[in-house]
């Protein structure tokens, strides 16, 4: 990414290495480990650099164990890096200065911060006191968030009586009551149904629009990424494989599109137009180079009686998979 003068998040050659104890199975190995402990260095984050300007939403993508959560933990101040530098809103995160903690939030989809036995409203009140939000401001943002997330009826119920999706919405509301400028979201829609995921995505987009918040988001749901992020950072084995626009990612790693064509007369051989991916109910799917799709579509329309024709980009999941398949440890960068 191009460097930006007003970046909210700056990360430079950030590294985190964990020392992990290691031994073989069995009694003999247990006894041996008493006198000779073996450790292995695991490079969870191996020299990551990027910048995120104020107000941008960036998708942080990678398989399990790629280093996403470790990076988020360092940026939110939970982990001290082994080396490298980072500043968020001008603060070094792992110093955990109160001014910094008051301006950021970390939401981890699999962890709860709300008090289990009482209504979410009471937990909101706790957060008001923790973040010292002035009364009038608190009321305004609380009512606004409650309305945006449509949780007016839920916040009065004890949290233990809420469904997973309802609880997640309440968790997100609680995490944003102090109106953080930077949001670290680790799988915020994990385990939620499609409707709930969509509502949370819409809310996050609206929060970003209203408050100009900077958001770094990890998600295994590509729909989250497509809906929210123009830019993605792809990481694997602790190194960045791609940093750039989602569209460019697709162009670079998936230079093909799929033409689905239904002909009035079935049984035609279309292999001359592209690679035939399959035929189903008279509908033929063709894999065609991106720069050829318009021409191929025009030829098909001219040559046959076409009842339906669509052109599709490959699913982002497939593109990302392709990135990992093609990846070498060298970093690939691209402008947005």
């Amino acid at each position: 990414m191009a460097a930006s003068g007003d970046a909210d998040i700056r990360v430079s050659d950030l590294r985190k290495t964990f020392k992990v104890p290691e031994r073989d199975s069995g009694l003999r190995a247990s006894l041996r480990s008493l006198v000779h402990r073996k450790h292995r260095d695991v490079h969870a984050v191996a020299g990551v650099s990027f910048e995120i300007p104020a107000g941008e939403i960036v998708g942080f993508l990678g398989p399990n164990g790629a280093g996403k959560t470790t990076t988020l933990k360092m940026l939110s101040g939970l982990l001290h890096p082994s080396s490298g530098e980072a500043t968020v809103l001008g603060h070094v995160p792992w110093r955990r200065e109160r001014d910094y903690l008051r301006r950021m939030t970390l939401v981890m989809g699999n962890r709860n911060q709300l008090q289990w036995d009482i209504p979410a409203l009471d937990s909101f009140e706790m957060n008001r006191a923790i973040y010292r939000v002035p009364d009038a401001e608190f009321r305004a943002i609380r009512d606004e968030i409650v309305e945006l997330l449509e949780i007016g009826d839920l916040v009065r119920k004890p949290v233990r009586n809420l469904s997973l999706g309802e609880r997640m919405k309440a968790e997100i509301a609680a995490a944003l009551l102090h109106r953080p400028k930077v949001l670290f979201l680790d799988e915020p829609t994990i385990g939620l149904d499609v409707t709930m995921q969509k509502r949370i995505r819409t809310f996050l987009a609206e929060y970003n629009r209203r408050y100009g918040a900077t958001i770094l988001l990890t998600s295994h749901y590509m729909a989250d990424v497509q809906a929210l992020c123009k830019r993605v950072v792809v990481i694997d084995h602790g190194s960045i494989l791609y940093d750039g626009s989602l569209r460019e990612l697709s162009t670079r790693y998936a230079p093909h599109q799929t033409i689905n064509v239904s002909l009035a007369e079935s049984g035609q051989d279309l292999s001359g137009y592209g690679e035939v991916l399959g035929t189903e109910d008279g509908r033929v799917s063709l894999k065609v180079a991106k720069d050829q799709t318009s021409a191929v579509a025009a030829r098909l329309l001219a040559a046959y009686e076409v009842s339906d024709l669509t052109i599709e980009d490959p699913p982002v999941e497939d593109v990302i998979e392709q990135v990992f398949a093609d990846s070498s440890p060298t970093t690939v960068r691209s402008g947005p």
Binding site: G77, L78, R96, D99, R102, M104, R111
Partner: peptide
């Protein structure tokens, strides 16, 4: 183990 401490650490208290 359950991450409660992490939740506490990211708060300014």
């Amino acid at each position: 183990r359950q991450g409660e401490l992490s939740g506490m650490l990211v708060r300014p208290v």
